[in-house]
Write a protein that binds this DNA or RNA. Sequence first.
DNA 1: CATAATTGATAGTAATACTATTATATTTGC
DNA 2: GCAAATATAATAGTATTACTATCAATTATG
Lengths: 223, 223
Amino acid sequence: MEIILSNLKIQVNEKIYVKDPETSALGKKIIEQSILLIDAIGFDNFTFKKLGEKIGSNESSIYRYFENKHKLLVYLSSWYWSWMEYKLVFATTNITDKKEKLNKAITIVTEKITDDTATEHINEAILNKILIAEFTKTLHTKEVDQENKEGFFLIYKRVINRIVTIVKEVNPEYAFAKSLVSTIVEGSLHQHFLTDHLKTITDCNDTVTTTQFYLNLTENVLR
Amino acid sequence: MEIILSNLKIQVNEKIYVKDPETSALGKKIIEQSILLIDAIGFDNFTFKKLGEKIGSNESSIYRYFENKHKLLVYLSSWYWSWMEYKLVFATTNITDKKEKLNKAITIVTEKITDDTATEHINEAILNKILIAEFTKTLHTKEVDQENKEGFFLIYKRVINRIVTIVKEVNPEYAFAKSLVSTIVEGSLHQHFLTDHLKTITDCNDTVTTTQFYLNLTENVLR
DNA sequence: CATAATTGATAGTAATACTATTATATTTGC
DNA sequence: GCAAATATAATAGTATTACTATCAATTATG
């Protein structure tokens, strides 16, 4: 997987950026360091000025890549879900047993990423932390309908619908496949958040994982 | 229920506000109108200056009630969950059948509030809309651990743990009661959000409700 | 090597998120 | 009914944010 991933160009909707950050050294530095800075100080405290200082570049240069920090977060999220989709497709192709395929898929989207994988300038483990802490903010804006129309959330929705297809293979009778999967994908980020911050309302921790919870849940719901 | 609710003083943690808004006409106006304004323009675009203009009061007067807009949102959320807890307790007390009790509880926390209920200056239907759109923002900050320590999320956690108790009465063997309930409570807000904005990844709509999805899910998981 | 494209530096604006001070109402306690 | 206390309003001011515009300096490319 390592080799393949390192050659992989993750596709992100062009409308999200002003200039594709993958096309220059500065662009890659913006992505790499924004992930570290958002993780360190949180998205709310993150500014392009601070990022500029961190990478030794001018604020105005960053604006040539992204209109604002919201779009940058949408970009990072899109990249993440694109990477997730790749992992998902890679891990489930050629599995003939439907239940096994579904379990694999659920494992992929619910497990916490703990190690930096193949890509050059992107630390997926930290990006996963950012998604856990900040992903909902990409959706919860007044512009969500407009941005949805422009395709900002296409990859996210595609990841969910890929798993929906697998769910329907396991149980074609089940009436809530979409809601189940969207609950799992969003909910697993939430359970990771609770594990980190509000331990009294989750059972998930280092030994009992979020993945186990959702595997068990899905098994029970679809049987 | 109407009469009782109108006499009810909803309790909110004192640390959330500078001055209790329930103790003055201006305070109540701040709560009433902030709900309408946040609903209208979204929390991100909401400022104390705009609220001041809307209620014909000075910005600085609002700061005497709330340190900042984040605390105001935490207050509104707290109030909502306190109201929800009241409804929950009221609706489930004296129900002896455990499954019926759980179904009632799940219905209470997952259904969309569509009508303004008893309280004077608070429109619960609109407040519910705000929770659907903005609640995650109360938790997803760098200060979450500190604020959790100070008890900002106590009522929210108590609502969840009340339902956890009911789940355990129905099935004491089930190992993920907390995660199940926190998934339901948070997830139902999310499903309502998807129904409003990302319809392609949910099955919930006007005829098939979020409540039905979660009743079915819980039934299957605990049987 | 000339030209184009990119980046950096500087400056500037409007809005945000407050704090401080003082004046003016309004409430309450005697 | 009035003085004292309290609440509110008005004004001003600061630091930061979230940009935009301009122009100079650097780097890439044909």
